[in-house]
Structure formats: structure tokens, C-alpha cells
Amino acid sequence: MKRTELVVSSLIVVALMICKFLLPKPLLFSPLVSTIVTILIGCAFLVIFILTVKGKPIERRIVFLVVGIALVFPFFMKVELPIRISPEVQQVYDKMSSLPAGSKVLAAFDYDPPSAPELQPMADAFMKYAFEHDFKVIMMGLWPQGPQQANQSVEAAWAYNPQWMPDSADEKVYGVDYVNLGFQSGNEFVILRMGESFKSMFPADLYYTAYDSVPLLKNIHNFSNIDWGVNFSAGKPGTVEWVQIAVDRHNLPMSAGNTAVQAPMAYPYLNAGQLIGLMGGMAGAAEFEKLTGHTGKAITFLLSQTYAHVAVILFILIGNVAFFLNKKEKK
């Protein structure tokens, strides 16, 4: 191993160990430090720009480093992004806050871990709000990993208020306050059959308890017993299928949270009034967190994502401006 390599790797190990064992948890930068970091990133871009114009394009590893920094450092910043609540997210919140305690809510988790950065924050905020307002939550997934993501959001709620954990003062009882039906294969046909009977598609919940033995599910036969549906979706099957079947055929009032890539496909349904509100991507999640007052990862992530997006845009711009300036000089 070469000397520099050894130095770099030991530095990284030391830095990680400091992070793991010495730094305060959670780590938060003061506004001053945040500003300085941001200015430093800005300076880095200025240097990159000057170097590129001079005809000395920077090495790719520097690009990687800058992107890495742009992604990681905002995690620790406490910057209040001006989050403007868009009407479609407000709609979701309005619907949710109009529900009385004890309302039965169906939450469909149709995504997997790669899409979790965008969708999990929405689900987490939803779950916290639902527990706070005593909704009865029925979770399910049309994607195999969906039910696991659902459980994660329950855990997030527990972390927010430990009183909700099992054997606590204000315990949210599994099977009474919430239930996880698990995954069922069959895509839109699952929704189709749920229209007739939930039980036919989910004879038992995720933990093999028979449908009828779950107290919460006693009086829930199909969509007509559900007060509100919410769908967290990263693709197909997802929001489009839910709207076409559960909303159009069974009149389920429904809202949705989508990844940024997926959201444009759901807009037509929003405009036609088939969807009550839509949360799109990290920005939608952040707005939702702000509305519910349960600030979580979305607001942190949104900052990271914005920094990274700006970084990519700057890289493209720098490359092109430098290219044009050089071309002019040659002429």
C-alpha cells in the first residue's frame, strides 16, 4: 500500500471513530457553522470554476468529494428552508385533520427501500399524527417489502413518543389500534378483490393471526367501512391502480404520497378530484412534516437533496461556461 493511501484510509477510520464515539449525538451545527460550511462549498465551486476556465478540469474524485459533502453536511445543519405549503399537500392535511378520533384509515405501503428516503418521512409523519389522534390504522402492501416499511413507520412513531410502545402508559395496542395485513401478490387484482372483501385477500395478518381474530378488523369488510385511504407509492402497482379501482369503483376517499418521479403521473387524478391531495417527493414530504408538526427526516433530507441538485446543476453550468469562454479565446 502506498503512503498516501495509508494516510487517507487511517484518516477516514479516525474520523469515523470520532464520529462514532466522541461527537455529541445527535450532531447539530450552529447557524454560524452551517453558514460557513455553505460558504465553503460555494468557494469550492468558485475554485472549480476558475480551474476549469483555465483549462485544468478538476479530477473526478474532487467531483465525488463535493457531491458527497453536499449530500452529507446538510444532515447536520439546522437551516429553516422556506417551505411553502403547496395546495395539494394542504388538501391531504385538511382531509386528515377533519377525521374524528377512532376513524378507520387504510394505509397502503407500495414501495421498497430504494425509494424510502422520499416516502418513509411521509409515512412516519402520517403514523405519528394517526397515533396522536387515535385513528385506527390498517396497513398493507402491494409491494413485497411494503409491510416492513410500514413497521418502520410504527417504530418511528414509538421513537417519537415512547408512551405508545407496548407495555407503556398510552400503549397503542397491536390489533386494536393498528394492524399490519402484510403483502399480497396480484397487483391491482388485490385491490379489486378487496372491494368485495378484505378478508378474501388477507385471510390472516402479517403475524398469521386470522382476520376475524383481530379485534380492529371485526367490523371491517371492505372499502365501505374505511373512512380514509392513504397510499405511499413508488411505481406500479400504486396510486394509479388505487384510484382506478378503490376510488372510482368503491368511492374510497383517498390521498397519496408519491416519489418525485412518479408524481407527474398522479397529477391528472388530482386535478380531476379523484385524489384528495398529493405529496410529491422529498419536497411534498417536508411540507407534510411541517403541517403535521412532526419534523422528521424529510426536512433534513430535502436540504441534502437540494444541495446535491444544485451541485449537479452547477457542475453542468461550470462545464459549459468554461467551454464557451475557452472557445471565444481561441477565436
Binding site: 478540469p57 465525488f64 457531491v67 430504494p114 449537479v312 457542475f315 453542468i316 462545464g319 467551454f323 464557451f324
Partner: peptide, 26 residues
């Protein structure tokens, strides 16, 4: 899972370097 999702996620970096280097109005 951690190995493949990290390998996939490397794309974030490669996208940036490709944007810087290759996307020029030549």
C-alpha cells in the same frame, strides 16, 4: 442488500461527474 444498494447508489456520484465532464454544448 447493503452491497447492492450501495453499488446502485454510486450512480449519484457518477451522474455528477458525467454532468461536469460530458454535458457540454460542443
Amino acid at each position: 442488500t447493503p452491497l447492492s444498494s450501495t453499488m446502485y447508489a454510486l450512480l449519484a456520484f457518477y451522474v455528477a461527474s458525467a454532468s461536469y465532464r460530458a454535458f457540454r454544448a460542443k
